[in-house]
Design a protein around this nucleic acid. Structure first.
Lengths: 180, 180
DNA sequence: GGAAACTTTCAGGATTTTCTGAAAGTTCAT
DNA sequence: ATGAACTTTCAGAAAATCCTGAAAGTTTCC
């Protein structure tokens, strides 16, 4: 049974609405993630775009400036969440997003580790080092507290490294065992 | 062998410097964590303070205003990272921090899940729901992509819940098994 | 009741982060 | 070498976030 023009149009409209809602809501959420709105929106847009988009497409779809689009695309490419692609017959750069969920997770985890865990580890190790040879009860208490923190962060970092080194399929079954 | 006054003073000074460095650096790091500087500094200060502190102690130690101290203390108490304590013979509120590293981890994880994962899950589920009955190839592709994301986030959320329900000692050994 | 001691709130100021738009920089075909 | 097409940069505008200080609100004790 063929759908008429009107029904097809309605479906296309509903689809566009969902796309749009996803991009906007994902963008709004970016704030909570320490990722700025534009970057999150560009990522969302590329994530659900069936084909690569040029900078101008993105600018238009999201109503953002060229500078903004360019900067955030560069950051996304640096992270590895987005890849530039060359389309034949077009001089412009096109961009496409990594679609595999496990890959995305690993990239985000790696970036967060770099920005959040490693600085913490350095601060803690530096403090533990500086306090090592100071005698007295107060110093000992402080040393113990900072060492506990430091050890925990180190362990967590090592753990994260190993988890993201695992290939996609192996992780879910293994983690399920952990939480018997 | 008794240390002289001069040596003891030097030790005390070095200790104070480490404390101070820790508080300031932890505060600076807070930014990367989506936690504001004052909140991170107050937390750091209480974390290494051997005894509970009053609002005025905190204001003075960190050179911040009363309003700022009060607001951020309230948030820390809401999170459960800091507890108010009543000291006998003093009408003021004193505050002390949760010192157990595993507890701190669980609290932070719970809060991040609430602020970052659960909104994401809601957005995704909402989009998947809205697209469910739209026919066509494009809709199917979008549905598949969003479902993959949605499933991953759900699984991760469930996982996090179970991990933080585990008692301190059990986690490290178990996770070590995961990364054989 | 009322005054002292302490806490909370919040409007406006300060700071940090993000965005824009236009100018400068590239690259490529001719 | 020139110019058209495209990309990058960056100074200043806009927006979001955070902090202050003083006033209003509580609680406690006499």
């Amino acid at each position: 049974m063929m759908k008429g023009f009107v029904e097809k149009e309605a479906d296309a409209l509903a689809l566009a609405e969902v796309r749009d809602a996803f991009v906007r809501q994902w963008g709004a959420m970016g704030s909570q993630w320490g990722i700025n709105r534009s970057m999150a929106m560009i990522h969302a847009l590329l994530l659900i775009s069936p084909k690569p988009l040029a900078t101008d497409d993105i600018m238009e779809a999201l109503s953002i400036s060229r500078g903004n689009a360019n900067t955030n695309l560069r950051d996304l490419v640096d992270w590895g969440l987005v890849m530039p692609v060359l389309l034949k017959g077009d001089r412009r750069d096109f961009y496409t997003a990594e679609k595999d969920v496990w890959q995305i997770f690993c990239i985000v985890a790696r970036e967060r580790k770099r920005r959040e865990m490693e600085p913490a580890q350095r601060v803690l190790e530096n403090c533990v080092e500086r306090i090592r040879d100071i005698p007295g009860d107060e110093a000992r208490v402080l040393r113990d507290q900072l060492s506990a923190l430091s050890d925990f962060v180190s362990t967590a970092n090592g753990l994260m490294d190993r988890v993201s080194a695992l290939p996609h399929g192996k992780v879910i079954p293994r983690v399920l065992k952990v939480l018997t």
